[in-house]
Design a protein around this nucleic acid. Structure first.
Lengths: 226, 226
DNA sequence: ACTCTTTTCGTACTTAGTACGGCAGCTTTG
DNA sequence: CAAAGCTGCCGTACTAAGTACGAAAAGAGT
């Protein structure tokens, strides 16, 4: 006597590439990237491991799809409207997406085959910059700069031992202890006088850099248009 | 009858943590990060897998050590001398190190336990910025910005399907083919009119952003000092 | 109901990390 | 110089994970 639809937690709609990828994201969000195995994912989906291979060629290809899905969560900038507003919107949106899925930053590296959402994303940014009046070359420069900054920030934030504005103090003690040896005076200074202060939020750090970059790009625009 | 010292290629000095880590780097450089397994590394070192565990607790810890070794390859900025020169030097040096070991960027993400070289590195940069006159807060901002940019650029460069200034054309064809569908007009434009042009070098892209950031930081210095 | 197609899965092989205990050679000590 | 101990090296073997291969089950269409 099979147990049929007794399963309480696991969803049991038919599988699909979409469901597999979304399940993978959910699993990675919950348990971390290391816990994302074909076997555990199958279980999560109420299926058996080999069933997944009907929708993805192999795990690597699945990860490509996952990365593209994460990219699709990022708001696209519009080519109309103020370019600074649009670029900022997408930068913030990208940071949020990579905050929701901290493991994704690591994945983006190894995957050299961008998916449609990724390409669309890049295309939209370049479009916005070109519409703003940047030359082809300058748009490429600006794009590389902005993108490097956004991903680099995501990398940094993912590496931070804390996440919210308030969880800082929890891990502060052992770190300060380590620095107290006097070997890293400047790290010590920045830690105690800035990062470990109550109101610290990495988001402020991010905004500072983003503003600085946008201002500098805006200043370079007139000369580029000439 | 043991074959003694007949082995031609494999080094056969006694093992050490140093040798294990350097072997790991060499293997990753040669065959890629995926090929770096405890088994293959042991073979490379002319030893058996389990021997490695005398020098590293487990693979993860080994990777931590590897990352720290890569960091130690980066030139430290000095607190004396012009801060822009020093910061630029370390930025270029960092890019070179991450170019030599493209797989390292991916590793730096997951490792939340920085080694001594990493800490020394960060400390030196902060020291240089502080000596230049930046306030604690501004130094933190500048540091986050610069670092995010350097790592982000490394990430971008590692994701590029080509490496040198001239290998571009090789992979250009299929890419252009893909874009030609007209779905990504701006990517297409940047590709054909900029990236795929003969003299293209990602290094120029990097320098542009670095200059822009340094200029903007320099402009912010006076107000910060006041 | 039968056949064709699509979806799901059972079995089993391979690779990789690593726990555990043994042994060899050098070092120390009587 | 021999017995005892320590250090570094490794043989064996277990577990987890990706996935090849082919078959069973579930639908679809006539």
């Amino acid at each position: 006597m099979p147990q049929e639809t007794i399963g309480t937690s696991e969803e049991r709609s038919p599988l699909s590439k979409e469901r597999v990828l979304r399940g993978a994201i959910a699993l990675a969000d919950e348990k971390g990237l290391a816990a994302l195995t074909m076997r555990s994912l199958a279980q999560e989906l109420g299926a058996k491991p080999m069933s997944l291979y009907h929708y993805v060629a192999n795990k690597d290809e699945m990860l490509d799809g996952v990365v593209d899905l994460v990219f699709s969560e990022i708001e696209l900038p519009s080519s109309a409207g103020d370019w600074r507003v649009e670029i900022r919107r997408r930068a913030d949106s990208a940071r949020q997406a990579l905050q929701r899925h901290p493991w994704a930053t690591a994945l983006m590296e190894s995957r050299t085959t961008p998916g449609p959402a990724t390409l669309r994303h890049h295309d939209a940014i370049l479009g916005t910059l070109r519409s703003a009046g940047f030359s082809v070359k300058m748009a490429a420069h600006a794009y590389a700069l902005l993108d490097a900054y956004v991903y680099g920030s995501a990398l940094q934030e993912a590496a931070l031992p804390f996440s919210g504005p308030d969880t800082v103090a929890i891990v502060a003690e052992p770190i300060v202890q380590l620095f107290a040896e006097g070997e890293y005076p400047h790290l010590m200074e920045i830690a105690t006088e800035h990062v470990l202060k109550p109101g610290y939020d990495f988001g402020d750090e991010f905004e500072f850099g983003l503003n600085l970059i946008l201002d500098a790009l805006a200043a370079a625009l007139p000369a580029d248009q000439a």
